[in-house]
Amino acid sequence: MLTMLIHAGRALTPTTEINDAGILVREDTIEAIGPRSGMTLPAGALEIRATDQTAIPGFIDLHIHGAGGHDVMEGTGPALRSITCKVSEYGTTSLVATTVTASAEETLRAIEGIASYIGQQHQTDEPRAEILGIHFEGPFISKERRGVHPSEWIQLPSAETLGRFLKAAAGNARILTIAPEVLGAAPCIDAAREAGLVISMGHTDATYEQARAAMA
């Protein structure tokens, strides 16, 4: 069992800042964090001196379309590997792969590819970020607030289309971005909630009242 004690100049936790910090790690579990002066190096453990560095929890990216010259919509193992390896270099330890508005066929192909990758991603020791699931951004958005999303593939919200996405995701769907003011949004939001997705309002031209109604 590998045990290491990281001696950092500073450590940030969700609740506090620790100067001259010690972080005790056994295998892949952080067992303790506190002032280094109050910690004893376990027998046989490795101490890593990083007193000029700040240790922080890994970033979790809930909305990412690509990195390292690749796009999530490619939906291939090599593309997703490149994305997850690249973001890990900058402190991101997990992410939710985010689709972009495209044809139903292209979207389904990408979703199936991401789901397949998720099922195999732990079969390696290579340092890379973990894909926690899939974020559907589009096609149920406002054409007026579409940003870079291609208008020709934007469509009215459809519980049936969402169901096809969910089936392709094979249990890996996590977030749906939707414009709540668009015709058909309410039943689609209900279907997404029933499936356990987090609902995100985005690319929307909703009024305050429409937004409040969607959250009710």
Results as ranks from 00 to 15, higher is better:
161 T>K: 03
87 V>Y: 04
187 P>Y: 04
67 A>S: 01
189 I>N: 04
34 G>T: 06
129 A>F: 01
7 H>T: 08
121 Q>N: 06
118 I>G: 07
182 V>Y: 04
177 T>I: 06
56 I>P: 07
159 A>L: 01
53 Q>W: 14
88 S>M: 14
14 P>F: 00
113 G>V: 05
147 G>E: 04
61 D>A: 06
62 L>W: 00
67 A>H: 09
183 L>W: 01
21 A>H: 08
97 A>I: 11
52 D>L: 06
182 V>L: 13
216 A>Q: 10
95 L>H: 12
178 I>D: 02
2 L>N: 13
181 E>S: 06
47 E>W: 02
55 A>N: 12
54 T>N: 12
29 T>S: 11
153 W>S: 11
166 L>A: 03
95 L>D: 07
208 Y>W: 10
204 T>A: 12
8 A>T: 04
159 A>G: 06
100 V>L: 13
171 G>D: 03
53 Q>M: 15
10 R>Y: 00
211 A>T: 14
184 G>L: 09
214 A>V: 01
65 H>E: 01
110 A>I: 04
87 V>G: 10
170 A>T: 04
18 I>M: 01
112 E>D: 11
41 L>G: 07
129 A>G: 09
121 Q>D: 10
98 T>R: 03
23 I>T: 09
49 R>P: 07
211 A>W: 02
40 T>I: 13
36 R>P: 06
25 V>G: 07
182 V>N: 10
66 G>N: 01
98 T>S: 08
176 L>W: 01
18 I>S: 05
40 T>P: 03
172 N>M: 05
203 H>T: 11
63 H>C: 08
10 R>S: 03
101 T>S: 09
14 P>H: 00
147 G>A: 12
42 P>D: 11
211 A>Y: 05
52 D>P: 11
16 T>R: 00
210 Q>D: 05
185 A>D: 13
1 M>R: 09
201 M>W: 10
185 A>H: 15
79 A>W: 01
29 T>A: 12
186 A>L: 06
145 R>H: 12
32 A>T: 07
213 A>S: 12
85 C>R: 08
159 A>R: 08
197 L>P: 02
96 V>L: 09
40 T>N: 12
86 K>R: 13
164 R>G: 04
9 G>Q: 08
140 F>M: 10
77 G>A: 09
138 G>S: 06
23 I>L: 14
178 I>Q: 00
27 E>D: 15
85 C>A: 15
29 T>E: 12
207 T>V: 00
88 S>T: 07
177 T>R: 04
167 K>D: 13
136 F>G: 12
11 A>M: 11
184 G>E: 15
71 D>G: 08
24 L>Q: 05
101 T>W: 03
